[in-house]
């Protein structure tokens, strides 16, 4: 279990990226959603020992992450949103390098592990090619492979499926799911579906805070009967926005679809909507913005 207590981080330019954040993440997949600038990456870097927070504590099992970073790293797999590679180094060589750095001293064992990972992420054919020449998707698959070295007990993945085609994405999600029995896996993503498909628990971050946290199914259930949809013309959008709590404006088959939040039936052509995580996220963000506007 990962426990984050009173975590705050202020950058030198004064930006408060995380503010008194408390979070407990159990074993299994944990989804982290939030808009750009919400503090997700700062949080994940702090957990991954890449950044020392201004204050607070992070505990992973018996490990005090901030005081015993090397102990945590021995159990950590990390895939950042973006990463570079060494030029002229093949996937096999680079993965071998990471395996060595993770402490795998036995050549045979290392070789087996690396080959298995390369097969898993479908890079076996390209294993001797320079990673620097990989396409975006291939590089992402390589990143996944390196994060999985050494059977991590804490796996932090930031936008892991970005750039993957649907088939690869499904394959990767299955891979993650297979690891989730014994590890804490934090999945930060903008693809809400990934969280809803995989994560029994989740949190939504905004403005450096956790604005919503809980079991995914329970959180989605909170929206039962309060989300409504209506197809409107473009000219009607503004009028509806002023009258209702619009949480999302979408286009579907060339028409504008409004999602609104209402405890009661808003009538006026609105139909009840089958609730999902995306609506939850939108609603939460809408509420958070409303709170922010009210805060002097």
């Amino acid at each position: 279990m990962l426990t984050i207590t009173d975590l705050s981080h202020i950058y030198p330019n004064g930006v408060k990226a995380i503010s008194n954040l408390n979070l407990t993440i159990p074993t299994g997949m944990f989804g982290l959603l939030g808009p750009n600038g919400a503090g997700k990456s700062t949080l994940m870097r702090s957990i991954a020992t890449l950044q020392t927070p201004t204050q607070g504590a992070i505990q992973f099992g018996e490990i005090d992450v901030l005081k015993q970073p090397t102990r945590l790293r021995a159990q950590l797999g990390y895939l950042p949103q973006e990463f570079g590679v060494y030029p002229r180094v093949s996937a096999l060589q680079l993965l071998d390098h990471f395996a060595r750095l993770k402490g795998f001293s036995k050549t045979k064992e290392r070789k087996e592990m690396i080959e298995g990972l390369l097969s898993q992420v479908n890079l076996w054919e390209a294993r001797k090619k320079a990673v620097a020449s990989f396409s975006g998707g291939m590089r992402q698959r390589f990143g996944i492979a390196q994060a999985l070295i050494g059977d991590p007990k804490l796996l932090i993945v930031d936008e892991p499926t970005a750039g993957l085609d649907p088939e690869e994405r499904a394959r990767f999600l299955n891979l993650l799911a297979s690891l989730s029995d014994e590890a804490v896996i934090i999945l930060s993503t903008h693809i809400v579906e990934d969280v809803s498909d995989l994560c029994p628990s989740m949190a939504i971050m905004a403005g450096g805070r956790i604005v919503l946290e809980g079991k995914t199914s329970e959180l989605i259930g909170r929206l039962d009967g309060i989300v409504w949809r209506k197809v409107v013309s473009r000219t009607e959008v503004a009028e509806h926005q002023s009258q209702y709590r619009v949480i999302a404006t979408r286009l579907f088959a060339g028409e504008t679809v409004l999602h609104v939040l209402s405890e009661t039936d808003p009538a006026n052509g609105f139909l009840p909507l089958q609730q999902g995580l995306e609506e939850l996220y939108m609603a939460t963000m809408q509420q958070d913005r409303a709170v922010d506007r009210r805060t002097p």
Partner: peptide, 30 residues
């Protein structure tokens, strides 16, 4: 031009798990 991605093979089961041990040999390797 970037190297091309290969076709997606069928899934082939669970990933075998390996545990690391941070001993002196590991330090030498690192």
């Amino acid at each position: 031009i970037d190297a091309a991605a290969g076709p997606m093979p069928p899934e082939d089961g669970q990933l075998k798990r390996y545990q690391t041990k941070l001993d002196l040999a590991a330090l030498r390797t690192q």
